[in-house]
């Protein structure tokens, strides 16, 4: 059983140390998820903080404690989407894809380099790519979440992929 699981009971009883331990165990995963949606670290941290606050508020209502990480991930994604919507991000083709990317991908196996590459995408492309490739949403679901058509979702994803392929083209997949 993972370390966070044993702190649930104490956190539910309102024990400060258990709540802190639960936070320490789960916040890094949430922050990592949020970092994929924003270019600025501060924005990702804000989304993580809102997600963790929601978690502590909703903790008594979560029936299956084992499902907490999955619940957290969904909530984190929703928080990120809410923030992007609040900022009135235009999902469709508002920003051109950058012509030059950084030389981030010195190693395809460097996760941080791939993260940087992902974060170079404009908000709209990055969001669709994240939701489809990493969260596993269908185009119909993405269309509903972002208020766009399925065709738009598909084209955004396709263009994001092509851009990624160009950036990754010089590297050999081992």
């Amino acid at each position: 059983m993972e370390a966070w699981y044993e702190h649930i009971e104490g956190a539910l009883k309102g024990r400060f140390d258990a709540q802190r331990a639960l936070y320490e165990a789960l916040a890094p995963r949430v922050l990592y998820t949020c970092r994929r949606y924003f270019t600025q670290e501060a924005e990702a941290e804000d989304a993580m903080i809102r997600t963790m606050t929601t978690m502590f508020q909703q903790l008594p209502t979560i029936r299956e404690a084992k499902a907490l990480p999955a619940w957290l991930r969904r909530t984190a994604v929703n928080e990120c989407l809410m923030e992007l919507r609040r900022r009135k991000v235009e999902w469709v083709g508002a920003d051109a894809l950058p012509d030059t990317g950084s030389s981030a991908t010195d190693s395809l196996h460097d996760r941080e380099a791939l993260m940087e590459l992902l974060r170079q995408l404009p908000d709209g492309y990055r969001t669709v790519f994240n939701l489809y490739a990493l969260e596993g949403y269908s185009h119909a679901e993405i269309a509903e979440l972002l208020g766009i058509s399925e065709a738009t979702s598909k084209s955004q994803l396709s263009r994001a992929r092509q851009w990624m392929q160009r950036r990754l083209g010089n590297f050999d997949l081992q």
Binding site: R29, L31, Y32, R35, L114, M115, L134, M164, L168, L173
Partner: peptide, 15 residues
């Protein structure tokens, strides 16, 4: 491309 990113970025942690 999808698989590459999924494998690399799906389960990470940031302090």
């Amino acid at each position: 491309v999808d698989k590459l990113f999924r494998d690399a970025l799906d389960q990470g942690q940031a302090t």
